[in-house]
């Protein structure tokens, strides 16, 4: 796998792995259940997946984005690399509301199951979230994390890790 030396880059990378894993499970469900094949409310796998989606958005995505915008992008800006921060922040602004919407739909579905209309809406938002999030992680893995490996010093790494742990 990727070999990151800093704690903070390893942590962010592990969160990317966890996110991709949930999104691939979601993608698998969308493949199994087409737009016109609403899953039954007593499907345990889907209920568990909905819980993971809620958890992913509430914990990982929100904290991850807030930390990046608050602590990491200023570091990049300070060294003069604004474009990547701007691209990633722009994508956060689209992904987070989409994630929140999906999380809300997942909460409703966990309580009441999916109606045909709710499943269609959930599937539509989910497909969009998968595509946007994968493309976003791609940019972070290929640009943000390697840059952080280059610029973050050891003591700074410990401080960033501490700040992120407190936030989580």
């Amino acid at each position: 796998m990727f070999s990151f030396d800093h704690q903070i880059t390893r942590t962010l990378h592990d969160e990317h792995l966890a996110t991709i894993s949930v999104l691939e499970r979601l993608e698998g469900v969308f493949r199994k259940y087409g737009p016109k094949k609403t899953p039954a409310p007593d499907n345990d796998d889907i209920t568990a997946l909905l819980g993971d989606i809620i958890n992913l958005v509430e914990c990982d995505v929100k904290n991850h984005f807030t930390f990046e915008e608050g602590k990491l992008f200023p570091l990049l800006s300070a060294m003069g690399d604004m474009p990547i921060s701007q691209i990633l922040t722009g994508e956060h602004n689209v992904i987070l509301p989409l994630g929140n919407l999906l999380s809300e739909m997942a909460k409703t579905a966990r309580a009441d199951g999916f109606s045909d209309a709710a499943w269609t809406a959930f599937r539509q938002s989910g497909v969009e979230l998968i595509e946007r999030m994968i493309s976003h992680i791609q940019k972070e893995e290929m640009a943000l994390l390697p840059m952080l490996e280059d610029i973050v010093e050891e003591d700074e790494d410990a401080e960033l890790m501490m700040a992120y742990s407190e936030m989580r």
């Binding site: 690399d81 474009p83 990547i84 691209i87 290929m142 640009a143 390697p146 280059d150």
Partner: peptide, 8 residues
Amino acid sequence: TNFLSGAN
């Protein structure tokens, strides 16, 4: 490594 950095 940081292939996409500043790509835009």
